[in-house]
Amino acid sequence: MAYLEKKGVYTNVLMAGFGGQGLMFIGKLLAYCAMKRGLNVTWIPSYGPEMRGGTANCTVVISDEPIGSPVISAPEALIVMNNPSLEAFESKLKSGGRLFVDSSLVTRKVMRKDVEVVAVPADDIAMEVGEKKAANLVMLGAYIAKTGVISKEDVAEGLRELFGAKIQFLDVNMKALEKGIQHTKT
């Protein structure tokens, strides 16, 4: 959908995985940081019973103009952290879009040939930094490294504001984010 592309900033991403993997959180974090940079943002969750254990997803739209549809049929980027999410959303990704896959958990083969696949062993990397739950930040690191929508510093500031006093969470999450960025750049 080239006609949706604008001269200014406009992007969107759909993130999906199991409830509890923290995709809703990194979606909110991404939107929050973009808002802090003066951009318009929308964040829409899937909601309901599937949030407990099943597949959860959210859509983030970022733009320097007022946002029309917060619901995106063919996202420009997709972050998936489990097999069911890849199965559910692979076909929806826009042609030429980016597919970020947590390769520690997603064993299913990507079928699309017209998209850029960014495979990140996020759970393994998270284990390395000492917090398995930080795999979501690894994926966010990969996403911002590729898209440049927001910077590492933006995320750091956003995390500081959201975590406040709980510095130990801040450090480990920042480490995970950096690893995600490094992995994707190299």
Partner: peptide, 10 residues
């Protein structure tokens, strides 16, 4: 609608 309630925006 449900999205007005669930959607986050600035």
């Amino acid at each position: 609608d449900g999205y007005i309630g669930q959607m986050m925006e600035p």
